[in-house]
Amino acid sequence: LSELSTNRARQGFSATETAISVFALKDALLELMEEEKGAETLRDFVAYSALVDQMGLFTFETFVRARESLIADQAEQLLELSTPVVKLWEGVVAVPLVGTLDSARAQVVMERLLQTLVDTGSPYAIIDITGVPAVDTQVAQHILKTVVAARLMGADCIISGIRPQIAQTIVALGIEFGDIATKASLADALRHVLRLTGVETTARRPRRES
C-alpha cells in the first residue's frame, strides 16, 4: 500500500483516486457474498469492510506524506533555479535576483553565492536587484547579510539595479548600505568592477557604411 500510494502521488493521481482503488476491494467481495447469505457471512463482510477502511486510511495518509515530500523537493529545486550565480568575467560573478526575496530564498542566495566564490576564487560579486519589484526593510537586511557573508570570504559586493522608485523607498525607510557600492544597472556595475581590476572599457562606435 505504501508503494502504491507513493507511486500514484508521483504519477499525478489524486488522493481520492488512490483511495478508491483500495475501497474497490469491497465491491469485489460483495459480488461473492451475494451467492452465500447468512449471519456468519455478514459478520465476515463487516470485519473485512473495517479492514479495507483501515487500508484506505493508511493509503490516504501515505499519499499525503509522499505528495508533501514531492512538493518540498520541487520547491527546493525552484529556489535553486530562481537564484542562479553566473560568471560574468574572470574574477567577477553575479546573482541576478528576480521576484520577492524572503528568508528561505535569501538563505539559498547566500549559500550559492559563497559556494561559487569558493569554487571560482572570484574577488568580486554583483548582486543585481533589477528584477526585485520592491525593497523593504526585510529585503534590505537579507541583501546586507549576503554582502557581509561575502566579505568574510574575501570578496567585495556591488549592488546593481537601483531604480529611482527603489532609491526613494530606501531613503524613506532610512536604510543605509554604508560603504557598499551601488549602481543603476548591471552593465554599470560590471564596468565599475572592471575598472577596479585595471581593465579599460570603451564604447564601440558603429561602423560607417561606405
Rank of each mutant, 00 (worst) to 15 (best):
L1R: 08
E3I: 10
N7T: 07
R8H: 09
A9Q: 00
A9W: 02
S14I: 04
S14K: 06
E17Y: 02
F23Q: 13
E31M: 13
E31N: 06
E31S: 11
M33P: 01
M33W: 10
E35H: 14
E36P: 00
G38P: 05
R43F: 15
F45I: 14
V46K: 08
A47Q: 11
Y48P: 00
Y48M: 13
S49K: 01
S49V: 00
A50H: 15
L51S: 15
V52D: 03
D53T: 10
M55N: 10
M55R: 06
M55D: 04
T62L: 03
F63R: 02
V64L: 13
V64D: 07
R65A: 06
A66K: 03
A72G: 01
Q77D: 14
Q77E: 11
E80Y: 13
S82M: 02
V85N: 00
K87F: 01
K87G: 05
L88I: 12
G91T: 07
V92R: 10
V92F: 10
L97I: 12
L97W: 15
V98D: 02
V98I: 12
L101D: 10
D102N: 13
V109P: 00
M110N: 14
E111P: 00
R112L: 15
L114R: 04
L114A: 04
Q115P: 01
Q115K: 12
L117H: 06
G121P: 13
G121H: 09
A125T: 10
I126C: 01
D128R: 07
V132F: 02
P133T: 15
V135R: 02
A140T: 05
Q141K: 15
I143C: 03
L144K: 15
L144M: 10
L144H: 12
K145S: 09
T146E: 08
V147R: 05
A150M: 08
A150G: 07
M153A: 11
D156L: 09
I158R: 02
I159C: 06
I159F: 14
I159R: 14
Q168C: 05
T169L: 06
T169A: 14
I170C: 10
I170K: 03
G174P: 05
E176G: 06
A181N: 13
L186V: 06
A187Q: 10
L190W: 03
R191D: 14
H192Q: 08
R195L: 05
L196S: 10
L196T: 04
T201A: 07
R205Y: 03
P206V: 05
P206C: 00
R208D: 05
